[in-house]
């Protein structure tokens, strides 16, 4: 009885774990392909097979026309949109968690809505606005920026709110009791405590902005971001350097996550 149950439990345990590892393999394989293809020396213009090993793509990442300029554009928009979205979103999160006012739950729902809308709808709404406002000719860097701040904002609010939820308001109250003014309380107590949440929100916001294609594409005019470059290249034949960029992005993000994990473990509490 016990041994039968034991065998069954062992199979049960490892069946789930095995299935999980297969699913993880499915999730990670395309990333491995990207890394592999960054070393590909394609025989034809359409590099859909691994034809030979080369370091050329790594030596000359900016080779293909517009690749690096589109990367620069994406980083610029990403940084600017992240700064503004993180600032506005953090303020909103503080308002929602630390203050009581009428309409708070309505504000919660309102902030949630952009996250629950398909990107194509968000993008076409913004385009409809710009066209109606007579901005159809000025689509470009700043319209992309406006769009990115809009969709990053909700994610920042949710991320910072989660961090604030876990903090005891008594700490801030103690500061106030010790005659700190609200400004000092914020900078000396609240901000350092919430900082990991703000940092996570900023990283999330940057990666959302950097990777967005659907909304950006509708509101970009002649401006080319990195995802738009890849899209355009996909119609003609993707240069292998795209995989170099993909690999570098992957390694940087992985490094940041591992570093923040170590950082978090070192923090007291």
């Amino acid at each position: 009885m016990t041994s039968v149950r034991g065998v069954r439990r062992w199979v049960g345990n490892h069946l789930v774990l095995g299935a999980a590892l297969l699913v993880l393999l499915y999730m990670i394989t395309p990333v491995l392909v990207v890394i592999l293809m960054s070393f590909n020396d394609p025989a034809g213009r359409l590099g859909y097979d691994f034809d030979g090993f080369t370091l050329d793509n790594w030596a000359n990442p900016c080779g293909p026309y517009q690749l690096c300029s589109s990367l620069v554009t994406s980083v610029e928009i990403g940084v600017l949109a992240t700064v503004l979205a993180t600032a506005l979103g953090t303020l909103m999160a503080f308002a929602m968690i630390r203050h009581r006012f009428t309409g708070r739950s309505a504000a919660n729902v309102f902030v949630f809505l952009p996250m629950a809308s398909p990107e194509i709808v968000l993008g076409s709404s913004l385009l409809a606005l710009f066209v109606n406002a007579g901005f159809a000719g000025q689509l470009g860097f700043w319209t992309i920026f406006v769009a990115h701040v809009m969709f990053c904002l909700s994610f920042v609010v949710v991320t910072v709110k989660a961090r604030l939820h876990g903090l005891d308001p008594a700490l801030e109250q103690a500061a106030m009791d010790l005659y700190a003014n609200p400004w000092q309380t914020f900078w000396r107590v609240s901000f350092p405590l919430v900082f990991p949440g703000i940092l996570a929100a900023a990283l999330l916001s940057f990666s959302l902005s950097f990777d967005d294609f659907i909304i950006t594409n509708l509101n970009a005019g002649q401006t080319v971001t990195f995802p738009m470059f890849v899209w355009g290249a996909a119609q003609r034949g993707v240069p292998m350097q795209v995989n170099v960029v993909g690999t570098v992005m992957f390694l940087v993000a992985l490094g940041l996550v591992l570093a923040s994990g170590t950082f978090r473990r070192r923090q007291p509490g």
Binding site: V31, F213, M249, L254
Partner: peptide
């Protein structure tokens, strides 16, 4: 979450 670390289109 690792797949998110690299571009949606490239993946």
């Amino acid at each position: 979450v690792a797949p998110f670390f690299t571009s949606f289109l490239v993946r």
